[in-house]
Amino acid sequence: MELLYRRSLGPVVGAFLTALREQRLLGSRTAEGRVICPPLEYDPDSGDAVDDLVEVGSAGVVTGWSWVAEPRAKHPLPHPFAWALVQLDGADTSMVHALDAGSLDAVRTGMRVQVRWAPERTGHITDIACFEPEAS
């Protein structure tokens, strides 16, 4: 069963995905100064609207992870990888994405990772191909 949807994005999600195409990452800053990345249109704590978008870094720290030994057909990577929660530099929340780390032993909470950009970017979350260990 297959259905194709066309989703409208709005000013916040749209801006985030537009910036991905330009290899930039945006977060939304709440009234209290918390930076949420990927950004939301509202503060999850108060429900207040948020429209202040700020740029965050394209590298950050792993705050949690799981290891997929056998990727599913639709997973972002065809070989074993980690799902990681990545708190980008300048952000206060974490993004869930794939982390191409080579092996389970190479992943740990607290490690530094950076975005690996997709060669062709279209304004989609998969413009981030995955994260990878930060070049030292």
Binding site: L3, Y5, R6, L9, G14, L17, G123
Partner: peptide
């Protein structure tokens, strides 16, 4: 939309 703001995204949902 190569350079303009991204306003829509396609989403293909296929389930077996």
């Amino acid at each position: 939309a190569d350079d303009g703001p991204v306003r829509f995204m396609p989403q293909l949902i296929s389930l077996d």
